[in-house]
């Protein structure tokens, strides 16, 4: 047990120090686009893309190097005039819908959008009987 504990200590110390690359961040990882409008649409897109290595964070909220490289990709493509949705589609083509926090309405995701409507319909159905004239009580 104790050896395991120490092994765990070593791991904790070793992983972050060695698994860190020495390259500076990609040009547009921490730098905004000069055109504020382009930067706004890049930011909006980055808020909805999932970092591939961090557990459940958007690439715009993460310090992981791969998130920085993804931000670089997004900003460069926006600067070249690509539309945000085209960039999203490009990434989804490579990583599946996992990479996008914005589920598109499709065969895999329709219950997400039908369920709330179904709930309200059900509530209305049940409540219809409930509302009587105020003085029937």
């Amino acid at each position: 047990m104790i050896r395991l504990l120490f092994a765990a200590t070593l791991l904790l110390v070793a992983v972050p120090t060695t698994a860190q690359d020495k390259l500076p961040p990609a040009p547009y990882a921490y730098r905004q686009l000069d055109d504020p409008q382009q930067e706004d649409s890049a930011k909006a897109l980055m808020d909805t893309l999932r970092c591939l290595q961090c557990q459940g964070q958007a690439i715009s909220d993460s310090d992981a190097p791969i998130a920085g490289d993804m931000r670089n990709q997004v900003r460069l493509r926006i600067a070249q005039g690509e539309s945000p949705e085209a960039i999203r589609a490009w990434l989804v083509e490579r990583y599946g819908s996992y990479v996008s926090y914005k589920p598109h309405i499709g065969l895999q995701t329709w219950p997400l959008f039908v369920a709330p409507a179904a709930f309200v319909a059900l509530a209305a159905l049940v409540l219809r009987k409930r509302f009587g004239k105020g003085d029937s009580a």
Partner: peptide, 16 residues
Amino acid sequence: LLAEAMGNKVSVGPPY
């Protein structure tokens, strides 16, 4: 989780 059980990976986030 449901999507995963059916063999897909889906992320649901702020845009939903």
